[in-house]
Design a protein around this nucleic acid. Structure first.
Lengths: 176, 176
DNA sequence: CATATTTTTCATAATATACTGAAAATACAG
DNA sequence: CTGTATTTTCAGTATATTATGAAAAATATG
């Protein structure tokens, strides 16, 4: 039994570090700490969890837990599940790595790429015919950015639409 | 002359909107608003600019201008240039789109991918041999994430090392 | 070296973001 | 309907991030 305890301590510690650090990383990724922590917690939880369990595990308020659980559901990273005989809402995380990647890629494209593209298109359009060295230079720079970001946007769609196995093939080819 | 003025007004407006919006976008990208605005300003400026010009154009304080110019130089998105007969430091932006992409990709990899990979490797390592259903599940999930993020890291390096033309070829193939 | 100009630093202020706790709304069982 | 469990909202508070402005340090000039 001594072994058993040491071993389950190791697991517990590792899980806790994972959750804490994944939360800190979330900040860099533009998601807030709590949301990332909840995501980590659910990702490594064998069972689905209810709001109170999440609150207790992460020592956060009900409002905070609720808001971020809803946000995760809105992203599609977490699903609500019903456990019969229990009135509470339970939550479980999407665990498939490729699926997680696609969801995050979609969201980041929406927040980071699409608004940039809209801006660049507008500026390129507005200054299309203008004469003068300055105007030309501005239009050129903006157009180049537009082309690049536009291509990135398309690529992102294509990759996200791929099956995992096919994406792996391409990745291997690039790395090999 | 009427035309000339209308036309240069259009240009000025478009430039100002570009700067303002690019700044707002910066926030989404994890860089602060001012840094993104200065970058935008220098990117579309035909000449290099000194700190005072940047301050005046964006209506920001000296400290703010200074800090963010230094940060942009540290990233490699902006270079300091010397103008003879002038004691002040002048700055000009990198304008090549592919180069800009590489610099940003490098920085984001450093901030977003590498720490994640380190965490995942640590957690995978710590729980490698552990018995028990929970431990196995944790190890599996973490290892899958590790594999995926590791591959993303390599891919990022490979793409950033490519010549623009070659990257374009690959992109075309994927889009075609 | 004395002075003028420019750069850098940093304590304080302003702003933006996230969290709490409790009240309001809703769902359910008896 | 009434009481209880659960979810949702939100005003107030706390935390973290950015910006200011003035003073200090560094640098150039004659």
């Amino acid at each position: 039994m001594k072994n058993m305890n040491a071993s389950s301590d190791r697991l517990k510690e590792s899980k806790e570090e994972f959750i804490a650090q994944w939360g800190a990383l979330g900040t860099q990724w533009g998601i807030n700490r709590t949301m990332a922590q909840i995501h980590a917690l659910l990702m490594i939880s064998p069972q689905s969890m209810c709001t109170d369990e999440v609150m207790e595990e992460l020592e956060i308020s009900r409002g905070n837990a609720h808001t971020n659980l809803k946000e995760l559901v809105a992203w599609g990273l977490v699903r609500m599940v019903v456990i019969k005989g229990d009135r509470r809402d339970y939550y479980e995380a999407e665990k498939d790595v490729w699926q997680i990647f696609r969801i995050i890629a979609r969201e980041r494209k929406r927040r980071e790429i699409e608004p940039a593209l809209a801006l660049l298109s507008k500026c390129a359009e507005e200054t299309k015919g203008l004469k003068g060295e300055d105007a030309r230079a501005f239009h050129k720079q903006v157009s180049e950015l537009q082309d690049f970001v536009g291509m990135a946007s398309h690529l992102s769609d294509r990759v996200a639409a791929m099956k995992h196995s096919f994406a792996l093939q391409i990745a291997s080819k690039l790395l090999g």
